[in-house]
């Protein structure tokens, strides 16, 4: 049993559980699945700076913080007690491409050679961590939601604007991964 839990879970198990989060949140308290709103609630709670967009009662959205604390705790539990001792198995083509940029360590879920603490203040680190994070935060709010809000919750409710957002998420990802990232990794 424990062994089955330690191996990477197949997509249909993970997908089904994630799909069930939608009705779980609705039935538990009429909540719509979404995560990026937390970033906004953090702004509203900590530095609203008299900006209209952040002047609302963030305490009404407290549930969202609890949800994220749960994600944090769940990931911690999985990493500590259910961790797969083997490195991530990735497509050999990707492994080969990444090796060309000196990324060979697959033992963690994020590439250590890019995301190590000492790399934060390198040019690559600043572009990927600071730049990437900024785009994620700015873009998700501009789009009105992220992958969970639009691609899971919005599509579950058959909202076509969410389909537009999802298509653009994918378009942005394809452009970055195939056309821009190679130049950044080569830095």
């Amino acid at each position: 049993m424990i062994e089955a839990l330690q191996n990477p879970w197949p997509w249909y198990v993970a997908g089904a559980i994630i799909g069930l989060i939608v009705p779980a949140l609705l039935i538990l308290g009429n909540k719509h699945f979404g995560i990026s709103a937390n970033l906004r609630h953090a702004c509203a709670a900590c530095f609203p700076a008299n900006i209209n967009f952040f002047k609302y009662d963030w305490k009404k959205e407290m549930w969202n913080f609890f949800f994220v604390i749960g994600i944090f705790a769940g990931a911690f539990i999985a990493a500590q007690f259910l961790a797969d001792p083997n490195p991530v198995v990735i497509n050999p083509k990707l492994a080969e491409e990444l090796a060309g940029y000196g990324i060979t360590d697959m033992s963690n879920l994020v590439p250590t050679q890019l995301f190590a603490i000492q790399n934060i203040f390198t040019l690559k680190g600043i572009i990927m961590l600071v730049g990437g994070g900024f785009l994620v935060g700015f873009g998700s709010r501009y789009a009105g939601g992220c992958t969970s809000g639009h691609s899971i919750m919005g599509l579950s409710d058959l909202q076509w604007p969410s389909l537009v957002a999802t298509i653009m998420f994918m378009a942005g990802g394809f452009i970055m991964a195939n056309l821009i990232l190679p130049f950044i990794l080569a830095l």
Partner: peptide, 21 residues
């Protein structure tokens, strides 16, 4: 916003390898 924001989000998603959750 769903177009422009979505595109920017996608760029960030592929850079960081992660969406907000």
């Amino acid at each position: 916003g769903q177009i422009y924001g979505g595109l920017l989000f996608g760029l960030g998603w592929a850079l960081t390898g992660a969406c907000p959750g």
